[in-house]
Simulated scan of single mutants.
Amino acid sequence: MADDPVSRLVPFGAGNAPPTPGPDRPVDLRSDTVTRPTPGMRAAIAGAEVGDDVYAEDPTVNALEAEVAALFGHEAALFAPTGSMANQIAIQLLVPPGEELLCDADAHVVTYETGAAAAIGGVSTRTWSPVGADLDPEVVAAMIRPDGYHTVPTRAVAVEQTHNRGGGGVIPLGTLRELRRVADDAGIGLHCDGARIWHAHIADGVPLTSYGELFDTLSVCLSKGLGAPVGSLVLGSTERITRARTIRKRMGGGMRQVGVLAVAGRYALRHHVQRLAEDHVRAARLADALVPFGVLANPVRTNIVPLDLSKCGFDAPGLATAARQRGVLVSVLGPRTARLVTHHDLDDADVDRAIEVLTAIFRS
Rank of each mutant, 00 (worst) to 15 (best):
P5I: 06
R8F: 11
R8H: 14
V10T: 14
D24I: 01
P26D: 01
V27T: 13
T33D: 13
V34Q: 10
A48T: 03
D53I: 00
Y55T: 05
A56I: 04
D58S: 06
N62R: 14
A63V: 08
V68P: 05
G73K: 01
A77C: 05
I91R: 12
L94H: 00
P97K: 11
A105D: 14
T111F: 05
E113D: 15
T127M: 12
S129F: 11
D134P: 02
D136R: 14
D136F: 06
P137L: 03
A141D: 15
P146G: 08
Y149G: 08
T151W: 10
Q161F: 01
G167Y: 04
I171M: 12
T175P: 07
R180H: 10
A186E: 01
I188H: 03
H191W: 01
D193T: 14
A195V: 04
I202L: 07
Y211G: 04
Y211A: 03
C221Y: 10
L235R: 00
E239F: 02
I241Y: 02
R243A: 13
T246W: 05
T246D: 15
G252M: 09
G252S: 11
G254D: 03
M255P: 00
V258D: 05
V260R: 11
L261H: 13
H271E: 13
Q274A: 15
A277W: 11
V281P: 05
R282Q: 12
L286A: 13
A289T: 12
P292E: 09
P292V: 08
F293A: 13
A297R: 09
N298C: 15
P306R: 05
G313D: 12
G318T: 04
L319Q: 06
L329N: 03
R336I: 13
R339P: 01
D347C: 07
F362K: 09
